[in-house]
Every structure is written in structure tokens, then in C-alpha cells.
Amino acid sequence: MLIEFKNVSVERDGRSVLRRVHLSLTQRRIGVLGPNGSGKSTFIRLLNGLLLPQEGQVLVQGLDTRKEVSRIRSKIGFVFQNPDNQIVFPVVSEDIDFGLKRREPNPKVRADLARQALEQVGVPHLAERLVHTLSGGERQLVALAAVLAVQPEILVFDEPTTQLDLSLRNRFEQLLQGLPQPAIVVSHDLELLRGMERVLVLRDGLVVLDAPPNDAIAWYVEHCA
């Protein structure tokens, strides 16, 4: 993975939410930590062009988010905090199929990819279930399967464990470790972040620390708790 932030600043509603971020992301597992309102969500939305910087440049594998947003989105799989917003169709298999349509014209191949993705996250039995009958944790896994089905090169997770009970959270952690793609994870789950290679701590729109997980978490607990 190579993502570069070049002096990136973002303002929203006249307020500076991200300031002069300048860094390269090359590790396989990167965590993002920070208090509410620190700019974490803004930071990850810059990765696939959901937000564009007022100043600076974000490059994903050399592609500028301002110019190549479509190509970048086909490379980055984004798992949102609330799976209800991500799941568009009422039946699980139908929703995964929706994401695959632009990439794969053959319905049988799409069905195979959907099945494989559901198996990968351990919920193949949910394929024909109605989404509104699933628990919050199951929906989160289905949302992840929908993202994995399109075989993205990079994964981005926004608070992936907030809706999961302890058992599902542990399952998610194992799953994350086994995924071949590089991943960027925004989370308040400190134990989950301990498994990262590098953690960025954001506060008031600034990257105030960029360190190995144990150092970053210790600093966060001391200064932001």
C-alpha cells in the first residue's frame, strides 16, 4: 500500500478539521485513534475521494483523489461504521450482487464471488436472509462481505467493532489479521489497535503522534482520556 498525504488541510463549515497532514502510509496495518471530533472520519474519507482537501494532495498508489476518483474507489473497499447505511438492498445476496454488477457482467460469477465473500467472513448461511432480520453484528459482517466481494486492494474501516458483541468483535479481529489486503482502521477499540503496525493519533485536526501501537495508545490514554 502506498498512500501519500501532501500538506493536506480540510475545512468544513468554516472550521479547520484537518491541518497540514503530511505523511506516507506504507504498512499493512495502520490504526487511527483520537477523541471525537479530532478529524478521524475526515482523514479516512480523504482516502477514496469522499472528501477532497481544500489544500494539498492525497495520492493513492500514485493516483490523485481529485482526478482519478473512480479508479481509486475501485481499489479501496470502505466499511462504514453503520452497516445500515452501507447495505442498500433488502436481501443479503442481492446487496452483494449490486456492488459486483459494475465489475462482473456474468450473474453466475457474481453469485460465486458473493458466496466466497460470505464464507470468508463466516456467514454463508445469511445469503438469502432479509437484512432487517439480522442482528447489528451480522449486518456488520454482511457489509464487510459486500466490500470483500469486489476484491479491493486496500481496506478502510470506520469504527468496525462498535456494533459487535465480544464474541463477534474477537471474530472480527481474527478475520482482520487474516485478510491479505492492507488495512487502515479507525477505532476507539484500543485492543484492536494493538494489533496494528503503526498508529496515528489525531487531535484537533492535527496528527499529534505517529508511532508503534503501544506508544501511541499509552500517549492517547495519558493525554486524551
Partner: peptide
């Protein structure tokens, strides 16, 4: 708010 979030999620799915 829900409509904005869904639109964002659809955008992210390419």
C-alpha cells in the same frame, strides 16, 4: 442525514 450517509456509502462502493 440518512440520505446523505447512504449516498456516501453508494459513492464509496464505486
Amino acid at each position: 442525514r440518512r440520505a446523505q450517509e447512504i449516498a456516501e456509502a453508494i459513492d464509496a462502493r464505486g
